[in-house]
């Protein structure tokens, strides 16, 4: 059964994948084995598909390097849940199709707790109950149905979220937030 990996505040991209283990440094096939190499050295060897990473605020601060979330994708994690994400990293997670949920589970769950996470609905089940996590924005789920924003653009000639010629409206704004 998938388990929780619990981290603290301000997990940065150098924590997730140190720059010296970038794919072109460590090798395209093995760079993911260095995920959390310094802060959780056992992580890459022990993580199982579907495991859920939880952390505190500002998850993913630092570099724009997309190979940090790529390493987690290669390890088939089930998702990341944190009360806030750094913006470039959040985009990267969504663009790669890694479920990311803005929610604080650090009070509720401990490292090693067994959970299941339905990435589509955001329903997380743990030993004592369930938590409904806020799902990613609709427009990105739309994109991920096509594979990524790249396939979406290739097919539709635009990015998801804005219809061509659409005018600004407060409805759009509140929906996006």
């Amino acid at each position: 059964m998938p388990r929780i990996w619990k981290f603290g505040d301000s997990v940065n991209t150098d924590d997730i994948l140190p720059g010296k283990f970038a794919p072109f440094m460590a090798g395209e096939d093995v760079f993911q084995t260095f995920a959390f190499h310094y802060v959780r050295p056992e992580f890459a060897a022990q993580v199982q598909p579907g495991d859920v990473l939880i952390g505190g605020r500002n998850w993913g601060l630092g570099s724009s390097r997309e190979y940090a979330p790529q390493a987690l994708k290669k390890l088939h994690i089930g998702g990341i849940v944190a009360p806030s994400f750094a913006r470039i990293h959040y985009r990267n997670l969504l663009n790669l199709g890694i479920p990311a949920f803005e929610y604080d589970l650090t009070e509720l769950l401990e490292d090693g707790d067994e959970v299941t996470l339905d990435a589509q609905t955001g329903l997380l089940t743990y030993a004592d109950g369930t938590v409904q996590l806020p799902p990613p924005p609709e427009f990105l789920r739309e994109a991920l149905k096509e594979g990524s924003i790249l396939e979406f653009f290739k097919k539709h000639g635009r990015f998801p979220g804005e219809e061509p010629g659409a005018e600004a409206s407060t409805e759009t704004a509140s929906a996006a937030e």
Binding site: I149, L150, F153, P160, A173
Partner: peptide, 21 residues
Amino acid sequence: TGVGSTDLAGAIYAGKVWFKV
């Protein structure tokens, strides 16, 4: 503004990028 490789790929291809204002 900085972006990851997927967004960079989109910008190279389309000359566009999606933003939430």
